[in-house]
Amino acid sequence: MKNWDSLNLFHHYVLQIADNTLILGQQLCEWCGHGPILEQDIALSNIALDLLGQSRLYYQYLSESTGGKFKEDDFLMYRDARKYRNSLLVEMPNGNWGTTITRQFLFDQFHILLLQKLSESSDQRLAEIAVKSIKEVKYHQRFSAEWVIRLGDGTQESHSIMQESVDELYKYSCDFFVSTEADQYTASNGICASPIEVEQLYYTNVNSILQEATLKIPEIKKPIYSGKKGYHTEKLGYILAELQYMENMYPNCEW
């Protein structure tokens, strides 16, 4: 058994970022072969692979910074839900195309702002990962925002499906801005600005795109728990069950 308690606040901070991209990437992979048309199927798979690739960079860094005590795979395969630090939004189910696009949009708008801050990090490795990721995420951001506008300001049917998705998912964006001990630690040590600093800009950006998409902006009702602190919905358990089952069945298997 790994002693997860030996991870420090810096590690937790990196997990908050890495787990977001991992869980969202994993969920997007489920669309492979099921996209509404071939072109969008591939587009989502591309995004999924970008996100999984980014997660790996963080887990590899974590592995190195724990002196190899934890391997890259340990972070993915041997943590249960309570140890995961992803925000609640990314564990919400794929739903229909509108739900997936809305979730992606709400995440991408945060992700780009976070990475821009991270690219100025005093931690050189994190800054490098951020710079590399920004190129990919700029495209994700453009892709999801265009789809939100296209569907929100589309037909009556697409509009109402999008409004339902926004009503359901918008509140989970609050979890990005929950300030954890890890956030406070990295902010006070100059490693990276607290996500709270981009909160206002985030909602300005998100709301202006929702308005352009003729979608109503829901009232914010903050969820009472936070994924960043390890308190998740039951949905994460199902995602991890699928993600981890092979490793659990056949530990250290290779192919």
């Binding site: 892709f143 265009e146 296209r150």
Partner: peptide, 20 residues
């Protein structure tokens, strides 16, 4: 070739399919 609803989407679909 790609399917797309408009020029912008066509460009993005082409990017996603043909420049991977």
């Amino acid at each position: 070739s790609v399917h797309a609803a408009d020029a912008q989407m066509a460009l993005e679909n082409a990017r996603d399919i043909y420049t991977r």
